[in-house]
Every structure is written in C-alpha cells, then in structure tokens.
Nucleic acid binder design. Structure first.
Lengths: 215, 215
DNA sequence: TAGATTGTTAATCGATTAACAATC
DNA sequence: TAGATTGTTAATCGATTAACAATC
C-alpha cells in the first residue's frame, strides 16, 4: 500500500484535535461536522477535512463525523492505544514535575525508572518510584523494555546521557534540556525548550504592544 | 517606516539562533558566515540570511556576521534587554520547577509573585518568594507592574484564572495548562502543552519504527 | 583589485484554502 | 428523493531555497 508521507504540520495538529474531541465526547456530543468543529477550534473546515483524510475516510457524507469513533481513531494514529515505557533522567524539580504531571499514565505512558546523579536523591521515591543511581541506567533500560528516555537534566549533562541512552537501544528522547541533541538519524527527539517558548512570548510582547520598539 | 509583518515561522527560529550564537560567543568565535552557521545548525544558509534580513542588515559582504553583535541584536529583537515581571499561578510541582528553572532571571524574566489556592502552600517559600493566596492576585498584579502571567495549574482552573489576569490588565500569558485559553485578541498566549508534545513523539515512534502499524 | 559573502530578487516547493463532484 | 456534508481536486498563498548582483 502507498505510504504517503504525512507532514509534521499535520501531526502537530493531531493532539489538539484529540483534545477537543475528548472534550466533546465527554460532553455527550455524538456527531460533529467539519464546519462545527472548525468554529470551536478556530481553524478552517477545509483544513480539518484535509487533515483527517490523510489517514483515510473517518466521516460520512451528509452526516459528518462520529465523535467517539474519530476520537478513538486519532488516539490510535497517535499511538495511544499502546503502552510506552519511559525512563526519566533527572529527579530535580522539573523531573519531579514531569513524573507527577503524569496523568500521562492513563494515556499509556508509564515511567518505569527514575535516575539521578545526585546521591541525596537516590532512594527517594517520586510517585512511588525510587530514584536510582545513573550507574544502573543501562541494565535497567535493557531489562524493562524501555521506549522513551526523558531528559530533565542540565544541558551540560544532556549530550552524554543522550549518548548512553542511544547506545543501549533507545530510539526516542523527550528532551527538556536546553540544547539540541546530536543523535543518529534513526533516533527521534522531541524537544521542549521552555526558554525558547518564553522568548517567543517576549518577542510578541515587544512587537504587539509597542510596534516600533526594538530599534 | 514600513512595518512588514514578520512570520511566526521566523520568530520561532530566533531563540535557536540566539542559543547557538551564545555558545559561539562563549566559545570565543568572533565572526561566522551564514554558510558555517548553516552547517552547525543544520539549516540552509539561505534561510539564515533571509531570517536575519527581516530585521535589517546584520552582516557585511565578504566578511560574514560578527557573532557578538548578532547575538546582542537578536537578544534585543527578542526583547531580552528589557525586564519582564511575572506572576506564577500554581506552586505545585510544575510551578516550582518553573520557578527554579528560572535562570530565566538572567535573561530579565523576574518572578515577582507566586500564588496558589492550596492553603498548605501559602507562606511557603519557593526560591525565596513566598506563596500568596489567590485573593491577593489582583492587587499584587496592579502594584508590581506585572507583564506576564504564568499558568501552572490544572485545566479546570485555567479559564477562570486567565480571565482574572486579563481583567487586571495582563496582556501575556505563558500557559502550561492542558487547554486552549479563550482570551481577547489583544492578549498574547504562548502555550506549552506537554502532553501534545509527548503525543507527537508517540506518533513518530509508531510511524518510524514500524511503518504500517496504525491500521 | 580580487575574493568572499552578504542582501535581495526570482524560482520552487509545500501547505492552506476554496470549490465542487461524489455519496450518504 | 432532496439536503447535507464529506472526500478530493484545483487554486492560492506563503515559506523555503536557489541564484546572483551588490559591496565590503
């Protein structure tokens, strides 16, 4: 079967669709047209139909889309019907926040292990998961069939840890460190660069507030 | 003077340029050509020159760009030469992580106040800033000339708090809550949707790993 | 001056939107 | 069947890349 490449622009929108459809479903809406959805989400109906059609026909002419079905299908496309096993590197504030924020768990993202170099943190439990020393990383990853490495460590340590993760077979890294990782191209990296995001906001404050201000 | 609108695509790239230029500067590099930078950053030299030229000529033919100058200029464009005053709403794990992660401070982002509904947290100090009760939000914002509201609270509370922030004059929200905010169009919202990011990663794992797998 | 590299225009590519025929 | 709304093709728009003249 033809494997038409789907653009990252489309993929970036899927979680948002998923979110809105989840809310509609929970609110008891059974069906929705691209037109209605476009008004709620503030995008064009055309884009919605194009996006969904990348994955085959989810709708029905004259009817629209079944909310629950569409929700489930997008969930599947996003791989949320499968379990993912994660290790979290870095049990500092951010690491703990990620671990706790994790009602991700109900979406199939399970933190198997937490690691840190800081001896004071080792043995401590975050969300009932003990913090382990970095030395155990490799053996742990291999034993537990880990999918995803989460980097919640300072940028100084990130390159080294990423390398270790890749070496023991991890193909996906969720990177909160303040740098770009240099990994083989079969390794996926999804970055969350908080300061980039804040700078973008800062730019727009400057611009929109007082137009000519950066001179 | 003509105010040509700069696309968000360009703006999204500025923090990354800023990051790399900072590193080059710290590493002692004085000048760099778009060609050299393109190799380091893995983008085209053409895009680099186009991006910079949105803001006027930062380079010099036959020479390239002065790293320090370019770094400073992009910093200014991003508004990093000005101080920003923030209030953080939500002193849970994520809120604390954000507050502590804040070597943002050296970039001019100053957390003036931290707020929470949880009575147990009130009075507690995060980074030496006391957590205040939500009742004090409005008066605090007005007193301290606050620019940016940071929402590190559950989505259930987000809409309401956003409304309160807008009402007392805040025009920029850095939103970590798991929902889109509905605000007047003169209010800027920069979202950090962690779960959207993780889902994107999940999609790509499914796709790249085993091509035909979502059926 | 000659060589290098920008600034900028033109060409290409991709993504979004519009339109409409297919069909439920 | 008639009305509604999708799936899909065509048109538009914007962003990226290529090319090259300007100039340091």
């Amino acid at each position: 079967m033809e494997e038409k490449e789907i653009s990252q622009a489309v993929i970036s929108r899927l979680p948002r669709y998923f979110r809105y459809l989840g809310e509609l479903k929970d609110g008891g809406t059974e069906r929705i047209s691209s037109q209605e959805l476009s008004e709620i989400m503030k995008v064009t109906a055309s884009q919605i139909r194009q996006d969904f059609n990348n994955f085959g026909g989810f709708g029905q002419q004259g009817y629209g889309y079944n909310v629950e079905f569409l929700y489930t299908e997008i969930g599947k496309i996003l791989g949320l019907h499968k379990k993912h096993h994660l290790v979290l590197i870095g049990a500092g504030n951010l690491g703990q926040a990620i671990a706790n924020y994790m009602n991700f768990e109900k979406r199939g993202f399970i933190i198997n292990g937490i690691f840190d170099i800081n001896k004071d943190l080792i043995g401590k439990r975050v969300r009932d998961i003990p913090v382990r020393p970095m030395e155990e990383l490799e053996s742990f990853v291999k034993e537990h069939n880990v999918d995803i490495g989460v980097l919640a460590i300072p940028k100084e340590a990130a390159a080294d840890v990423a390398k270790r993760l890749v070496k023991c077979g991890i193909h996906a890294i969720w990177n909160f460190a303040h740098m770009d990782l240099n990994v083989p191209k079969d390794v996926l990296v999804e970055n969350v660069h908080l300061s980039d995001s804040l700078m973008k906001l800062s730019y727009n404050i400057n611009r929109c507030g007082k137009p000519e201000d950066h001179k």
